[in-house]
């Protein structure tokens, strides 16, 4: 996932509009816009239509909000759980990722080692990341084996009440993402500012607080939004490392969607609509926060 430049973009524009230029520009953006627009608007639109009973698997189409109320308890519990998992993963990823970014930009050999190892995790698909984390921290995982702990002595990280393994997997992958994005910003800009501040007599702590962190802030905010939305809406990891109750929203949606009872598809669609709405709200909040960042514009 990338940082988003935000609606409108922050890139320089060259106003050279002519009729033929506009037409050409339109032709240039058209294919990409059509594909993205079809998937986004079509996906949300059909989910919405299904969720209000207008596209049933069997029987007559009839408007109803039953799908939203049928699992109201599960929906609320799932919402709370998904928000908690996404928040924990986002906060931890940003803290660890920012630390890594500072080490990467400051250090020499150690910086390069951290840079290389964090890059290593980037191409790992989340499904495989989940398998790896499971093999590491499950009751029979490598760590309890190495420490000689029995399942009774080892905390329930996989499938336990606190969803630790799920948050660990997200944090592992996404902290690498934050590290790379933020290190990219800091590498291009921090050197000059930092040196100036040092020359002016700023202490190390103050330089970190007043130079490095403000410089990194826009990149951190954008990364945080992306991570939050991703972890909020992702299925495989929570399913593989989670427990049967309560269920995060995507897992609930999947169970209903693949359930063999014929009435559950609208219910799955209702969960999908709720998930999307929350994701869009989070993006809006993130964008608002970004606009308040002095360095953004």
């Amino acid at each position: 996932m990338l940082e988003t430049p935000g609606p409108g973009g922050a890139l320089p524009t060259r106003p050279r509009a002519s009729a033929s230029g506009r037409l050409r520009a339109l032709l240039f953006v058209a294919p990409a816009v059509l594909i993205a627009g079809f998937v986004v608007i079509g996906g949300i639109g059909v989910a919405l239509v299904q969720s209000v009973g207008l596209m049933p698997l069997v029987g007559e189409a009839e408007f109803s909000l039953d799908a939203y109320t049928a699992n109201a308890d599960d929906l609320l519990t799932g919402l709370g759980l998904s928000l908690a998992i996404a928040t924990a993963s986002t906060v931890l990823s940003c803290v660890i990722g920012l630390t890594a970014a500072v080490i990467i930009t400051q250090g020499r050999i150690s910086g390069r080692v951290v840079a290389a190892l964090s890059a290593l995790t980037i191409p790992v698909p989340h499904l495989i990341g989940a398998a790896a984390i499971g093999l590491l921290v499950a009751d029979s995982g490598l760590i309890p084996r190495a420490l000689g702990l029995t399942p009774a002595q080892w905390p329930d990280l996989v499938g336990g009440p606190w969803w630790v393994a799920v948050v660990l997997e997200y944090t592992w992958k996404e902290s690498a993402f934050v590290a790379l994005v933020v290190a990219g910003v800091l590498a291009t800009r921090v050197a000059q500012y930092d040196e100036t501040a040092a020359l002016l007599g700023a202490s190390r702590a103050r330089r970190l607080r007043h130079v490095v962190i403000p410089l990194a802030r826009p990149a951190v905010i954008v990364s945080a939004v992306i991570i939050f939305v991703y972890t909020f809406g992702s299925y495989e990891v929570a399913w593989l490392l989670g427990r049967p109750y309560p269920e995060p929203l995507p897992v609930l949606a999947f169970r209903l969607f693949t359930s063999i009872s014929l009435t559950s598809r609208p219910e799955a669609a209702a969960v999908a609509v709720v998930t999307t709405a929350v994701a869009l709200i989070v993006v809006a909040i993130g964008m608002a926060a970004l606009k308040r960042t002095p360095l953004w514009r």
Binding site: M1, L2, T4, P5, P7, V29, A32, V33, A36, G37, V39, V40, G42, G43, I44, G45, V46, A47, Q50, I226, V229, F232, G233, S234, Y235, P250, A253, F254, F257, A268, A269, A272, V273, T275, T276, A279, L280, V283
Partner: peptide, 15 residues
């Protein structure tokens, strides 16, 4: 163009 990032994959798929 950026919206697919905010759309959970399973929503697009189900729809």
């Amino acid at each position: 163009l950026l919206a697919p990032l905010a759309l959970p994959a399973f929503v697009a798929v189900m729809g």
